[in-house]
């Protein structure tokens, strides 16, 4: 009896975790490939606008997107592992979507390294924008390459073997997922706006420092 009780609780907790995990992952393409738009694509668009206009505002947006990519990616990876441990009985598996996701996350991390290594150089905004293009151009390959292997990620919605559209979720799951996706999306954009504003303020402070001394 006790066993079963804990099983049920386990299952409920796992579902809850999955519902937290999914929208986080969807923020970035590989785990929700065609259905989502991703940080790196916004970052690349903002980067293109920056190169075209020379307006540093776009560079800040691009930078904030990549930073949020690292943050949300890390949370998805962590929650994904916590969920996978009881359900798949392993922390990590080199399954297609997981692998894609990890590689994409490494691209985000590489971008942060690039920003760090040239902190004071004004030219960094330009080369960082170029790197977002390279990253964005790499996205289809990062998705495709591990997919040529195949794996065991739970397919909750998408097409089944016969090519029909399937949707393996119960009504409350759908509702919870919908709320969760919306919430995470709002958090994402809130953080994006705030991070961009903060970057603007700190560069304004630096400007004033330069003008009037400390």
């Amino acid at each position: 009896m006790r066993e079963r009780g804990s099983d049920t609780r386990f299952a409920i907790r796992d579902t809850r975790l999955a519902i937290c995990h999914l929208p986080l992952a969807i923020r970035h393409p590989p785990s929700a490939i065609r259905r989502s738009f991703s940080s790196i694509l916004i970052a690349a668009v903002a980067g293109a606008l920056f190169l075209r206009t020379g307006n540093l505002k776009y560079d800040r947006v691009s930078h904030a997107c990549m930073e949020l990519g690292v943050l949300f990616g890390a949370i998805s990876l962590a929650t994904g592992m916590i969920w996978a441990r009881p359900v798949w009985n392993t922390w990590w598996t080199w399954e297609a979507r997981l692998t894609s996701f990890l590689i994409l996350w490494l691209v985000y991390v590489a971008y942060m390294m690039l920003r760090m290594s040239a902190r004071d150089d004004p030219g960094v905004a330009r080369i960082a924008a170029v790197f977002t293009f390279v990253g964005a151009a790499d996205v289809p390959f990062i998705i495709l390459a591990p997919r040529l292997w195949r794996g065991l990620h739970p397919v909750l919605f998408g097409t089944n073997a016969g090519g029909e559209f399937t949707f393996n979720m119960t009504q409350p799951m759908v509702a919870a997922l919908g709320v969760s996706i919306t919430a995470v999306m709002l958090v994402y954009f809130y953080l994006l706006v705030q991070r961009t504003r903060l970057a603007g303020l700190s560069s304004r402070v630096a400007e004033l420092r330069e003008q009037y001394g400390d």
């Binding site: 590489a110 390294m113 690039l114 290594s117 080369i127 790197f131 390279v134 390959f141 990062i142």
Partner: peptide, 21 residues
């Protein structure tokens, strides 16, 4: 080459992009 830690930066930037290839 236009960053401070050139030799370190190249592999860090290149390998994630290079994985599919």
């Amino acid at each position: 080459a236009s960053t401070r830690m050139r030799e370190v930066m190249l592999p860090v930037l290149l390998f994630p992009v290079l994985v599919p290839l």
